[in-house]
Design a protein around this nucleic acid. Sequence first.
DNA 1: CGTTACGGTGACGTGCACGTCAACTTCCCT
DNA 2: AGGGAAGTTGACGTGCACGTCACCGTAACG
Lengths: 130, 130
Amino acid sequence: MSDQVMTIREMCDAFDVTPRTLRFYESKELLFPIRDGQKRLFTRRDRGRLKLILRGKRFGFSLEDIRQVLDLYDLGDRERTQMTRALELARDRLAEMRRQRDDLDTMIAELNEQIIEGEKALAEKNRTAA
Amino acid sequence: MSDQVMTIREMCDAFDVTPRTLRFYESKELLFPIRDGQKRLFTRRDRGRLKLILRGKRFGFSLEDIRQVLDLYDLGDRERTQMTRALELARDRLAEMRRQRDDLDTMIAELNEQIIEGEKALAEKNRTAA
DNA sequence: CGTTACGGTGACGTGCACGTCAACTTCCCT
DNA sequence: AGGGAAGTTGACGTGCACGTCACCGTAACG
């Protein structure tokens, strides 16, 4: 049953982050561990959120950006206006992510091209040097 | 002929960055504007590099990371060992970018799913409220 | 009952990527 | 010759995302 909730150390080992990071994310309202006295206990929900946070960070999203999106993932009982607003935000993010993917595809193609060129140049260098 | 080289202001307008940014990039050896006396003049090469820099930044790459890759784009006459090293680095970057694209695809799919769910919930809310 | 381990809370420090501001040149215009 | 616009070099300031350190609580172990 202890994998229902995890201690801070278990979290750190599982996600390769420091305690400081988890506490920092809590202070920024990205995670909401429950408390056993003073001690934090991270739930399944926290683990899901952390996974998304770490993914988001790999694309240069700020923690604030990520928080906005995360909120979409548990809009339970919100005001219509709040929900509408959140959806608009999410659609914007989605559009941006699609643009990013296009850019990323371009970068991958270009870098790949450059690597091939580089390999050619290297092969030539080795040939003439031999 | 003046679009062979551009002033700092023309660059700023063209790429939507500040002079400070361009000077900063030069100090980090990401750009190499030529000089007319004191004044910087940015060449076509600088423009190409800046474009790549700005794209790289959108994915959370550090300027140092970007510099390493940029160097690959003009490896003219380098030592074999240097070239080999640069190619290795580029292949690593390429692999990471492919991983990032996979992650990004996952995130796009998941966010899209959440948006659909959100839209459903919102529609339901509107129905029951009516 | 001491101490070792794990966890907590401030508070200050750090690296990155610039922003901001002061104090010059340099060129152009009238 | 005077004045403004654009550019330059320091040097210090800033926001973000944590790192680090000092100090405190407490649960467990020998």
